[in-house]
C-alpha cells in the first residue's frame, strides 16, 4: 500500500502502522513524521469490537492468547504470552494468512482454519476481507461461547 507523508509529501510503501494515543498512524520512512492512517469503516468497527472480544475470550482458561492480524499491515493488537514479540507474531500471522488465503481462493468455501502444533491449537478466522483473528488455545475446538461471540463480532463488523 502506498501512502504520502502529510509533512514532507514523500511516497511511503506501507507495511506497518502504530497507535499513538489510540489513533492509528504510519511513520514516514524519510522524515519520521507520524501521519494519520485511516482504516476503512468496516475495519474500524471490527477493531473497536475486537478489544471487548479479547477480554471475553481471555476469560476462558482454554485460551492461551489472541491477536488481530491485518492482511497488509501485520499485527494490529495482541494479547499473547510475553515471550512472543511482535516480530514473531507478524511471522506466524503472515504464514497463517497465506495458508488461509490460498485455500480461500482455490476452495472458495473456507469458514475457519486450525493449525495443531504439539498440544496447542491456533484457530484462524477471517473477519471482513482484511482482518484475521488468531486464537491460540489448548482445546481442539473453540469453546461454544467464544465461537458465538466471534460470529457476532464478524456479523456486527460487516454490517
Amino acid at each position: 500500500m502506498i501512502l504520502f507523508c502529510e509533512d514532507c509529501g514523500k511516497k511511503n510503501l506501507l507495511n506497518s502502522i502504530e497507535f499513538i494515543a489510540g489513533k492509528p498512524v504510519f511513520r514516514c520512512s524519510f522524515c519520521g513524521y507520524p501521519s494519520p492512517y485511516h482504516f476503512r469503516p468496516q475495519e474500524v468497527r471490527l477493531i473497536e469490537k475486537a478489544d471487548l472480544f479479547f477480554k471475553e475470550a481471555r476469560s476462558f482458561p482454554e485460551t492461551l492468547g489472541i491477536f488481530l492480524y491485518h492482511k497488509e499491515l501485520g499485527v494490529l493488537k495482541h494479547d499473547m504470552p510475553e515471550i512472543l514479540k511482535k516480530a514473531d507474531l507478524d511471522f506466524v500471522g503472515k504464514n497463517l494468512m497465506q495458508s488461509y488465503m490460498i485455500n480461500q481462493s482455490w476452495l472458495g468455501d473456507v469458514t475457519e482454519m486450525a493449525l495443531f502444533v504439539a498440544d496447542k491449537h491456533m484457530v484462524v478466522k477471517l473477519m471482513g476481507d482484511s482482518l484475521f483473528i488468531i486464537i491460540a488455545c489448548k482445546s481442539a475446538i473453540l469453546p461454544r461461547t467464544i465461537s458465538e461471540k466471534l460470529f457476532q463480532l464478524n456479523a456486527h463488523g460487516a454490517s
Partner: peptide, 29 residues
Amino acid sequence: KMAEIVSICGVNSHIIGKTNFRYLIISRK
C-alpha cells in the same frame, strides 16, 4: 490444484511448528 495447496500450506505450517506440526484443518461450509 490440491497438490499446490497441500505443498504451500504444509511448508507454511512446518515453518511455524517445526517438528511439532501435527496437522492443519481447513473447515469448509
